[in-house]
Every structure is written in C-alpha cells, then in structure tokens.
Write a protein that binds this DNA or RNA. Sequence first.
DNA 1: CGTCTTATTGATATCCCTCAAGCTGTGTGG
DNA 2: CCACACAGCTTGAGGGATATCAATAAGACG
Lengths: 240, 240
Amino acid sequence: MNALATQTSFPPYSPQSQAMAVAGPIDIDQLSRHVQILRRKLAPGQHAYRAGQSFHAIYLVHAGFLKTCELSEDGRERVTGFRMRGDLVGVESIGLAHYSCDVVALDDSEIWELPYPPVMHACLYMPELQSRLTAALAEEIRNDRAWMLALGTLSAEQRVAAFLLDMARRHLRLGFSARHFLLRMGRADIASFLGLKHETVTRALTRLDRLQCIEVQRREIRLLDADGLQRMAGQGETIH
Amino acid sequence: MNALATQTSFPPYSPQSQAMAVAGPIDIDQLSRHVQILRRKLAPGQHAYRAGQSFHAIYLVHAGFLKTCELSEDGRERVTGFRMRGDLVGVESIGLAHYSCDVVALDDSEIWELPYPPVMHACLYMPELQSRLTAALAEEIRNDRAWMLALGTLSAEQRVAAFLLDMARRHLRLGFSARHFLLRMGRADIASFLGLKHETVTRALTRLDRLQCIEVQRREIRLLDADGLQRMAGQGETIH
DNA sequence: CGTCTTATTGATATCCCTCAAGCTGTGTGG
DNA sequence: CCACACAGCTTGAGGGATATCAATAAGACG
C-alpha cells in the first residue's frame, strides 16, 4: 500500500483548513458575514450543476476534484478544465440566467455555494472582494488562452507533458508533492481536455515513461525529469 | 468596384456613433464623467499594446479590426481572437502588472483607452459599471470555451465553417450584411486562430466554395447557404 | 470469483501538415 | 504605362502524426 492510496479524498484537508480565512481568491470569513454560504458535498460522478439549470451561485472548491465540461447542441462535448481546492467554479455563467456548462465531481468533493446576487451586493461593502473576483475572472481567461496556445501549437506528446506539469504545479501550490501524485481523472477526460483520443494519451504517457521522464502506473504519476518535460513542453521555468 | 471596397475603414461609423452613449458593454457617457478617456488611432500593423508592457488601461474598440495574440517563452505564437467595434480589449491582463498578450490592428482602427485603476475606482460610483464589466469578463470566458470545444471536436473544414458563421454573426450585430463581407485578416491569421495551417484554410474555403456553401475571392466572402454551413459546424440556429 | 470499466497495445486508415511550385493582385520605379 | 518585385493565396504531391478499429490486460467492485 502506497502513500497516495491513503489519501481517500483529494486534496485532503490541511490541519487548519476549517479555520482558514482565505481560500483561493476570496476572503471567506468576511464574505460569510454578508452572505449565507452553503456547503455541499459531492460524490464522484455527481454534478455541481448542469448546463441549463438556473444560475444562482458561484462555487469555491473546498476539497476534492472536479471537471468542467462544455457541451454543444449536437452532442459534442469537451472537458475545458479541472478544478481543485481554491478554484472558483461557475464564474463563466455570471450574467446569464442559466449555467452554460456542466461541472462534475471526479472525487469526493466539497464545494461552498456563494449565492450570486448576494455576492455581487456584498461587493459594495467589500471593495476588496470586487477586485478579487474580477482578477479571478481575468486569470481564468489567461489560463484558457494559455491552453489554447498549447493545444494549437504542441504535439500530442508535448500536450501531455504540459498537462502533467500543470497538475504538478497545482499540487505543489496546495502543499502536495509535485513529483508524485495521483491523477483524479481517466484517460478519456485527459484526452478530451487536450483535444486528443484516449489511446493517444496512453501512448504519450507510455512514451514519456520509456524516455525516463516519468513513471506511470495507471493513474499514479512520478516525475523523474521535470526539466526534461519542461523543455519538451516549451516552458523555460522549473518547478521549485 | 463593389460595395465592400468603398468601406475604407471597417466597420464604418454609424451616423450617430459619436453620440452613442452605450458602446458595447460599457456606458461611456457616464464613465467619461469619472475617468479621462483617451482616443487612440491605429494603422494596420500597429500594436495597441504588447505582452510585457506595463498594464495601465483596458480598451474599447470603437472602430476597425484587431487581433489578440498569445505568445510563449519559446517563440510559439497563436491568434486567440479577433476584435471589432464594441469589444473590450485588455481585460485578460487585469490583476497583472504587465499585459499578457499582444493586440495588433489589422485595419485602420480607433480604440478608446480606459485607464484601469480609475475605471475600478469609478465602479464604486457606478454599480452598473461593475456588473457590466464582470459580465463582459464572463462572456469572454464563455466565448473562449466555445472555441475550445469547436477546435477540439471539429474537422478543419468544420472549423472554417464555424469561423465564417461567427464573423457573419458579428457583422450582423454591428448592422452589416451577414451574407457578404470582407475578411480583415490573412489566411495565416485565420489558420493560427483555428489551430490549422494556412494551406488547410485555403483548401477548406475552396472546398466550401465548390460545395456552393460560400463564394470566396481572396478576402471577399459571400454566404450562399448559411444553413448548410451551420449544419456542418454542428450549430442548430439560423442567422436571423 | 465473475463482471464491468478503464487502460494498454497493435495494425491500419485518414486527415492534415510539409514542401514546393505557380498564381494573383498590389505597389514601385523607370 | 509598363516591367518588375513582392507578399499573399492557391494548388499539388507526398509523408507523418494522430485517429480508428480491434483485441487483450489489468484493476475495481460487487
């Protein structure tokens, strides 16, 4: 039995997590004085919301792991991102009457529901909140654009490398090992996100394993040569 | 000489444009009471800003046509969008010290510079502005995600069809013909935006022409069968 | 232990890219 | 006004990366 297997929920709460005042970009303690925050737990496969449901709240991921899926009229579907602790979810639907995409838990998760008109109203009393929210939206755009660049200019293998590095960085930001982690999603979800087919993702992972860049065993990933991966993905910086 | 050739600048000002109170998502008349709005003219090829320049303003496109380009450390580059009258530009860099991408005019253009800290400050006096700005950011995210879905699930030909429909819709929204318009960008820019090569874009256009869906002559486009294009691009609705 | 889902691997097909050449329109200078 | 050069577009031939189809293997779960 390895260490990762004991992480029943991902990411596990840090010791002070219940008391943490700032989760992600939002000052929750202060916000909770103005709006009623509901905590929702989701089992793997459950939806936080679906496209078409009436928009009433944005969510802060407190624990777990989720994916956002874009859907088209004719049934095409694509994973547009993965969300973990500290990420805001639902902001893409601000200004609409109905949510525009699906959000599905990939693991046991807890999300904090921030009812939207109240949050907007609270911005009048918390100027800080307003700029945080706007900055979070802008960062979302930059993040999407960075992936657009990657998907349009990198080969399958490079995309997978970039994906692993992104996961590693986000794990690190939450205080987990960037060198050794468990993917919370299946090959098909990775493939959808990267604009590939699941067999291609598998082959890329196998190849990176053979190149001694990583060690893969199903969903368990070990980064052996992060610098090599970064060169491959066209990124200069190192994971600290 | 055809009608399009007489449109020296695109889109031309509408008769009341100088007096128009609401351009795009922002109430400019009211905003101009709070912040100093500078009008900048750009010739084709000129940059509104470049990645790395210090962030000090967002822009409202008043006339003309521009592209936004994402750049990577190792020299990869990709067009992430095209902007026309009413579009906001620069919002992706909110929260940063420096702009994160390039914005280049493709045609004679005029952009209105909205200095950013002042705009943020003005939000305190104009609650409407705040929600408009947030909604504009959210729409940007949805727009990017819709293209992510398209680029990940459509063939080259379908992408080109979707691109033409998008252009047609946006022309229509500005009061121009959706059936007959001039592309402001070259094949290479379209290709970059769609994650293709310029030869592939050319071939797709030629093919759509042969299929009698459109008529192409260099940059002049005529939509002969918008419904056919829409079916092709997996979109149900019609251009009204 | 059997079933089901997920992942891996292989063989082949296809779409798009690459490279190369020719074409078209535009601008420039004689 | 014409000759020329140049940039952008088009077209063709061929190759390569990824998709597709199919079979097997490995876990997960009851």
